[in-house]
Amino acid sequence: MPTRAAASRPLGTITRGTTNPNRLRRMDRWIVATHGAELRRADDPLAVDLGYGAAPWTAVELLHRLRAVAPRARVSGVEIDPVRVAAAGPYARAGLDFRRGGFEVPLPGRPLLIRAANVLRQYDEAEVPGVWRRLCARLAPASAHSRGGLLVEGTCDEIGRRHVWVALGPEGPRTVTFAARLGSLDRPSDLAERLPKALIHRNVPGEPVHAFLRDFDRAWAAAAPYASYGARQRWTRTVRDLTADWPVTDGPARWRQGEVTVRWGALAPRG
């Protein structure tokens, strides 16, 4: 039987802690656009920045961005490393706190949002489903008037130019979003290096995500004439062509932001 100390130990391992100001702006922009209404309607719009890293910039920025659409939003930064929690203390304010914890998400309430960026990168692929289930179980449940909480889990580069994330509800994974500063791409498959852990090792022939990125590159090549109007016009045309064969869930307003969102079931690993 585990001791009390073992039972209270946070779940997970300490990450490298790499972080930079504005690194998660693309993910935050998408969250605000797609989940802002849920946050605004909630009695207690609680969000969690899980594994915020060696500095609390991303949690501070998340509070600012969420409050632009949901003024009552509050954010709790959760880190497994007590040194990082202590270092973040001076940045706490009304609506923003920091606490030690891991995948158990040690909060008294049920968050309407858990953002876990660059957290699962160091874990084995086989560990991801269990972490997802645990985090989804902590989300606010769905109701007659709400789809419930949202877990956004993904990976980005060091300065946030390229990002891929999975969005999950209490019921499990819903969508995969690819987002980029379009001027940084030679082709859409450049985003493959930022696939989340659940997909990055599946970018091989025979797997859906590999087929998707292949078709994405082909559509990008076919849209080359639109490059004279700018990378945004080329991307928009490319995604429009993708909709013929892939279940894209968003529209031109998101495509113009350098994004495209696809149903999880179309890209989920085989087996």
Rank of each mutant, 00 (worst) to 15 (best):
L46H: 01
G36L: 10
L139Y: 09
R67G: 13
P252E: 15
L24Y: 03
A223G: 05
L195M: 06
F178L: 13
A253T: 11
A219G: 07
V204W: 09
A5R: 13
L135P: 00
I114M: 08
L267S: 00
R65T: 09
G183N: 06
L112S: 08
P129E: 13
G95C: 03
T155P: 02
V69P: 13
A142I: 05
N118G: 03
G53Y: 02
D217P: 09
V239T: 04
P141M: 14
A231H: 09
M27K: 00
G148H: 09
I114R: 06
V164T: 07
R41H: 14
W132D: 07
A54G: 15
G183S: 09
F178S: 06
L62W: 11
S228L: 14
R25V: 11
R147M: 09
R100Y: 12
G172H: 11
P56C: 09
A179E: 12
L195G: 02
E79N: 09
T175H: 11
R72P: 06
E193T: 03
T238Y: 04
H201N: 10
P82C: 02
T155N: 12
A266R: 02
L213A: 02
R41Y: 12
D97R: 09
E171S: 15
G154H: 02
F212K: 07
G169C: 07
D190W: 00
P252I: 04
F98G: 05
S76Q: 12
E38L: 04
R254I: 03
R23P: 09
V119L: 06
E171F: 12
T243A: 15
H163W: 15
A55V: 07
L182K: 05
P247A: 10
Q257G: 07
V75S: 07
L46S: 01
A86H: 15
G258K: 01
L39P: 00
K197I: 04
G251E: 14
A266T: 01
K197W: 07
